[in-house]
Amino acid sequence: MVQGQTLTDWSQLCDALAHGWRAQTVTAATPAPGWITLTIRTRDHLATPILLPTPRPSAAATEVDAVRIGVTEYGTPWVVQVAGRHLLVTGATGAGKGSVVWSILAGIAPAVRAGVVRLWVIDPKGGMEFGAATALFDRFVHATGTPTLELLRAAAGLVQERAGRYRGVTRTHIATTVEPQVVIVIDELASLTAYETDRKMASETIQLLSLILSQGRAVGVTVIAAAQDPSKDVLSMRQLFPTRIGLRLTEATQVDMVLGQGARAAGALCDQIPDSLPGVGYQIEDGTSRPLRARAFHVTDTDILDLADRYPAPAWPMDTPEGGETQS
């Protein structure tokens, strides 16, 4: 860059450069002080839906550190970490939040069948999103209020119980059938917080979630949450999610609310994703400044039924602190 120029100067010119070069988009990033990198996209490799791959018979049953959930714009596998990482997915109606979450569940399904991962699912919309695959889940609630609070209380209790046992023994949880990775999936975060009419319940929910998010990663309890409304009330815990994925959003100002300050200037153009590209979004990881553009697999109803049939969760003893049962 010429002396005196900044990344902001170049970011403000990206739209004009894209029109001048007849490119789809131009984004700017700074790889080192005094240097600028322009990424020019002339055609979209993510324009076509990507089908969920057929499960490989030889697939490792414990792959929770690197779960493939789609394809990046460079044609490489889109991989997310489930163990030790909380993940937040935000997007407008029809943006494809379900595609991202179901792609993750498909990726860890072999570990579920092996007993290395336990899925605790909260579907506050009456079970419409996850009700077809209850065989995958160790715990499943489809109503807000007391059922959801009981699940979150159990999760918080598990976090504290494990922390007490691990203290002075180990700093890293390793998922096994004895100490499985517990993955809590929340379909609509706002239903538990901003939209809960009982303020006492909402307050306890936020308190429990904050404890789980702040202390759960080290002891093998992680959260995957989806949100439609990127308001301050809903995303007050955003900083507790190290991995954040922004799908199509309705306003440019929402991008930084979801992904973090400066994300849009760095190239996360969530507000420019068209309706015709559900499942396309930008991923930001804590400690990185450059967003990754990718598309999740297209998971059909048939795929979901097949997952539930192929990878049912094993029976879990009810007398153990980590056991659970399906509830409404």
Score class of each variant (00 low, 15 high):
Leu136Arg: 00
Ala190Asn: 01
Gly220Phe: 03
Ala194Pro: 06
Arg162Lys: 13
Gly126Asp: 10
Ala154Tyr: 05
Thr148Tyr: 01
Thr148Ser: 12
Ile212Arg: 01
Leu158Asp: 01
Thr172His: 13
Gln160His: 13
Ala156Met: 02
Ile186Ser: 03
Leu119Gln: 04
Gly220Met: 07
Pro124Asn: 10
Arg153Val: 06
Ile122Tyr: 07
Glu161Ala: 15
Thr172Val: 15
Thr134Phe: 08
Arg165Phe: 12
Val223Asp: 01
Leu119Thr: 08
Val183Ser: 06
Ser203Gly: 14
Arg217Pro: 10
Gly157Thr: 04
Val182Thr: 14
Arg167Asp: 11
Thr193Val: 13
Tyr166Lys: 14
Ala202Ser: 15
Ile212Ser: 02
Ile224Ala: 07
Gln160Ala: 12
Val159Leu: 02
Ile206Arg: 14
Pro147Glu: 09
Gln181Asp: 07
Val121Leu: 11
Val112Ile: 03
Ser210Gln: 15
Ala194Cys: 05
Val141Ser: 03
Asp198Lys: 13
Arg217Gly: 03
Gly145Thr: 08
Ala133Asn: 01
Met201Gln: 15
Ile174Thr: 14
Gly220Pro: 04
Arg199Thr: 14
Ile186Asn: 02
Pro180Cys: 09
Thr144Gln: 10
Glu196Gly: 04
Gln181Trp: 03
Ala163Cys: 07
Ala163Asp: 11
Ile122Met: 12
Val141Trp: 02
Glu161Ile: 04
Leu158Ile: 07
Ala163Pro: 07
Asp123Glu: 14
Ala133Asp: 01
Leu152Phe: 06
Ile212His: 00
Met201Thr: 15
Leu209Thr: 03
Phe137Ala: 04
Thr197Phe: 06
Val116Gln: 06
Glu196Arg: 15
Ser210Ile: 05
Val112Met: 00
Leu119Ala: 08
Val116Pro: 02
Leu209Pro: 02
Ala154Phe: 07
Ile224Pro: 08
Thr170Glu: 12
Phe140Asp: 06
Val182Cys: 08
Leu158Glu: 08
Asp138Ser: 13
